[in-house]
């Protein structure tokens, strides 16, 4: 009985003593992850379609910024990012393209690598594609996928295609059809030259740019026809800007 009271008393005093110890702050240590910065307002594109067909013949390469962002805290050293090319990709690393500056700089949450495309002979009659995948290395784990509503936004792979073959932009139907009418190779080359415009794969245009392009295109075809008569496309149809 006496023993029991002693133990009880001892436990009570111990409880009070615990109350006096310093509280250690809780810090959450998150693992470093890296992902492609895409589908944001700054870099809204989901994939890259590079066509050299709109470029002058002396252009042999094109550099595109490849933006990354990390999850976790920045560190005071440059940290390399690992990226691998998906199996079955037709674009060959080192021949069709290369990636430079593939790292997250010290004390930064963002990194911008350079994806460089080369204009190779074979691209004149074909299109090569590749999927870049973020890979795990000693610095970073693979980033994340965003779930917005019912859709999932992929931020760990990036698809691109390279060609020198003149082809219809995938967004012709959604963006350009309304402005310039039916597609033809002749029409897009004419517009590229007259509007001094090559970014045919943009996801959207502001209204003031749309109307300016339409009006410029209309007067360009008018001036052309005045000098040369109707411009005929590869299918034998007259090029018309509605």
């Amino acid at each position: 009985m006496k023993n029991w009271t002693n133990i009880f008393g001892f436990l009570c005093s111990l409880l009070f003593l615990i109350g006096c110890s310093e509280d250690k702050p809780l810090m959450y240590q998150e693992d470093s992850k890296v992902y492609f910065l895409k589908n944001t307002t700054e870099t809204s594109r989901d994939s890259i379609e590079k066509s050299f067909a709109f470029d002058p013949t002396n252009v042999t390469s094109d550099t595109i910024a490849l933006n990354f962002r990390i999850i976790g805290f920045p560190k005071d050293v440059d940290r390399e990012i690992a990226v691998k090319v998906k199996e079955g990709s037709t674009a060959k690393l080192g021949y069709h393209f290369k990636i430079d500056n593939l790292f997250i700089p010290a004390n930064s949450s963002n990194g911008s690598a350079e994806l460089i495309f080369f204009r190779r002979e074979g691209l004149k009659d074909s299109t090569v594609r590749a999927d870049l995948l973020i890979a795990e290395n000693e610095n970073f784990e693979v980033g994340y996928e965003d779930v917005i509503g019912n859709s999932k936004i992929n931020r760990v792979t990036l698809r691109f295609s390279i060609t020198d073959l003149l082809s219809k932009p995938t967004n012709w139907q959604t963006l350009w059809q309304n402005m310039f009418g039916d597609y033809s190779n002749t029409k897009i080359l004419f517009l590229t030259q007259q509007l001094n415009y090559t970014a045919w794969n943009v996801p959207y245009l502001f209204p003031q740019d749309q109307s300016n392009m339409i009006n410029k295109a209309r007067i360009a075809i008018y001036e052309y026809e005045k000098m040369n008569g109707p411009l005929m496309d590869e299918n034998g149809n007259r090029v018309i800007i509605p």
């Binding site: 003031q208 740019d209 109307s211 009006n215 007067i219 008018y222």
Partner: peptide, 10 residues
Amino acid sequence: GAKKFGAQLR
């Protein structure tokens, strides 16, 4: 985006 006067209308 900047808004300016565009090309002439037809």
